[in-house]
Design a protein around this nucleic acid. Sequence first.
DNA 1: TACTGTAACATGCAAATGTATGGTATTGTC
DNA 2: GACAATACCATACATTTGCATGTTACAGTA
Lengths: 210, 210
Amino acid sequence: MGRTPAGETRGKVFAFVRDRLLAGQPPTVREVQEALGFRAVRTAQQHLERLVEEGRLVAGRHRARGYRLPGSSEGARTVLAPVLGRVPAGALDAAVEDPDGYLPVDARGAAAGDLFALRVRGESMTGVGILPGDLVIVRRQPTARNGDLVVARVGDEATVKTFRSRGRRVELRPENPAFAPIVLDAGAVAILGKVIEVRRILGAHGGAGA
Amino acid sequence: MGRTPAGETRGKVFAFVRDRLLAGQPPTVREVQEALGFRAVRTAQQHLERLVEEGRLVAGRHRARGYRLPGSSEGARTVLAPVLGRVPAGALDAAVEDPDGYLPVDARGAAAGDLFALRVRGESMTGVGILPGDLVIVRRQPTARNGDLVVARVGDEATVKTFRSRGRRVELRPENPAFAPIVLDAGAVAILGKVIEVRRILGAHGGAGA
DNA sequence: TACTGTAACATGCAAATGTATGGTATTGTC
DNA sequence: GACAATACCATACATTTGCATGTTACAGTA
């Protein structure tokens, strides 16, 4: 029977599988077969094997719908972090139950429930490229090390600052000369977690504004 | 045997399935079983059936890894955007096929294949809070409007700048006084896409450094 | 022609996986 | 206690689906 020039079909197979994977719906070998118009399962199968050899796909052996894109296979798993509009005093867990939305986060190491996101208010951290309206993704932990970017609760407010320990006191340092550090007794500060990522959603319309 | 108070476990089952689905890796019934610590497949199965009854999930009958989120064909969906180390001249598609990894992105509106991510080099955009090493998430499009933050190819380099049209010429403006704008004939600039999000991964260890 | 490599075909088997049958324990209600 | 409802368990069955075996067709090359 007739064939197709070298590599051409392979590219189409890859494109199909990639699109399906990126859409969150891994295809079966038979779905690849149908999509490409092959009359034998084996044909689709062979193309997939080749793509794996070439390193363009990763196969999960004997696993249904087991093909993945390299780099997204193991280790890196996506979870959803709740976006908290504000953190009510003493009720982080309650706030997590009623979020403003969810953000997909590449949770390497962190458990799903350990992450949340907060919207930054104020310009106190512009010195490290964190602007008002930015989202910080936070891993919950009760302690911090010097230099960590943390979310801490001071009174009823949750705030993003750089953490620094000074003897029995704690300094929450803004990264903007116009703001003064907050120095408190260690007992008066509750560390909610550590900032592991910063995001700025620009949206489909607006520009970046100088 | 013992049980768990009403609804509590169901929520965990749903959270697990939802996270997996949004991560692009639909779970099997047995994976749900293991993740929740059930000793019988049937238990996970029953929870899934309930979630379908409640309308929180949609089942694909007899389909492997067939559970879906209702309305997942539309609306906000998480997709994986390929992270491109660099963009070879004229071969964006080729670069997309061999990415450094993938980032989960909340793709509202954008098709899965339309998104990619680039790592920012240089300090030309620090004025808008984009630092060296930051990741920009880009939606592919061949045109831009004034003020848009774009990724453009000038010669063999892909660069992030603010777009501005000046008659038949195009200005690619850095957001840092130390850098000069690039002004070129419109034909000499290829717009690769528009920046829709900026990310900075701080990682588990290092702080933010002033 | 013969040989080699690639692309495709037809078909069967076995592992993975959804679904069903039936049973045990705990809680709450009457 | 009797009854119902819920949560869970143990196991069997049926479909889906990955993978293997073997074959045919075409192109290029010696």
